[in-house]
Design a protein around this nucleic acid. Structure first.
Lengths: 204, 204
DNA sequence: ATTGTATGCGAGCTATCGCTCGCGTCACAG
DNA sequence: CTGTGACGCGAGCGATAGCTCGCATACAAT
């Protein structure tokens, strides 16, 4: 922020800019996200925009950060609430929370994940992954597991799998309903952490 | 292509443009990927570039398409070669092929996946996913499985999981070596397809 | 050799876009 | 009421980048 909005009027304007920016982004894509366009959509002048935002990227940052912070908080909270319950319950609740969080603004999620250069979200994605991974590593370490396998790596695998499955499901609306997806995710994770030594293909 | 290069000289130039484009992309990032810059790097003039490419995007398309087509072919070939072997062997071989393919040009992969808007690769990713998914669905359908679960959905889950795990591993060099990763992927998939009804957490 | 065509050049046109700056307006303090 | 700073405006600057066009050169066919 270049200047702190002191009066109520200017604070409302900052909000209008952010809202208009989101509308332009969702309605017309990232290519249309020019400062002039956003200002026009907000019903203000380009000059006014630059009184409170140092540059175009700052506006985008606010939009993306707000969205992703909410997603991250909801997912992390859901997981933290369920630590101590059984593995499947934890997994299901967390995946369900991720789905719900990602679905709250599908259109914005789509633009962010399909139009924007991934760098924009990379840091925040990593941060969320790490938050979840740390909790999960602790849970995995506490349970008796195959001593030859690293809980850190397992947590990394599980977090990435769930993240990408939920993300793609929300964006692509594939041939599986929500309950089915959650079932499969639970299967995936429980099957994974309970498999014996390699070379045991199970009931194959 | 705006014009077909007939003489040897011009065909070499087109190659030089593509090569230079890749160098600019890898060496200086997508922001630096301007037509003038690419032309300069190729030692030709901007006008010459536009004799064979309709626009800037076309140059980028050739670069990206070539890279991804090679990746896709290698992965699909590895999988096709192993259809008929046991599940774990198939999974391991395919994942290993994916790793090897993605690693052949890590720098380009990084730019493509971190700098470029994901739309650029989306269609081709989907195409590869579908190729692999179809083969996998057939394999899953042939084996005796839980009748309540859909092979299509299972294949979708497995393909996405492997794709994203290998991709992220190549890009992030996380705390697991190659063999470990392959072991975990095999665990993940074999555990997944062999889990019984939901609510059976296995040897928990 | 000559002629038609493919090739290649590079200055520069055009359009866009991020951003600024000088000026008018409004709100609040004294 | 009045003055001072916060607020807001919008034309337009400067830079960039995609792309073109008229011309010179190299090649190939006759």
């Amino acid at each position: 922020m270049r200047k702190v909005p002191r009066q109520e009027r200017s604070r409302r304007m900052v909000e209008r800019i952010v809202t208009a920016g989101r509308e332009v982004l969702v309605g017309s894509g990232y290519d249309a996200f020019s400062t002039n366009r956003v200002a026009a959509a907000a019903g203000i002048s380009p000059g006014s925009l630059y009184q409170y935002f140092p540059d175009k990227a700052a506006v985008l940052d606010v939009i993306v950060d707000r969205y992703w912070d909410e997603v991250a908080d909801r997912v992390a909270a859901a997981l933290a609430d369920r630590v101590g319950e059984t593995g499947p319950a934890m997994v299901r609740a967390t995946a369900a929370a991720a789905l719900a969080a990602l679905e709250t603004d599908r259109a914005l999620l789509r633009v962010i994940h399909e139009d924007l250069p991934p760098r924009r979200l990379a840091a925040q994605r990593r941060a969320l992954e790490q938050r979840v991974r740390q909790l999960l590593t602790a849970v995995l370490t506490a349970r008796p597991g195959d001593p030859g396998r690293s809980p850190d790596v397992q947590a990394w695998v599980i977090v990435l799998a769930i993240e990408n499955l939920t993300l793609r499901w929300v964006l692509d609306e594939p041939g599986a309903d929500r309950a089915q997806l959650l079932d499969e995710i639970v299967h995936l994770v429980t099957g994974y952490v309970s498999t014996a030594q390699l070379g045991d293909p199970g009931p194959d």
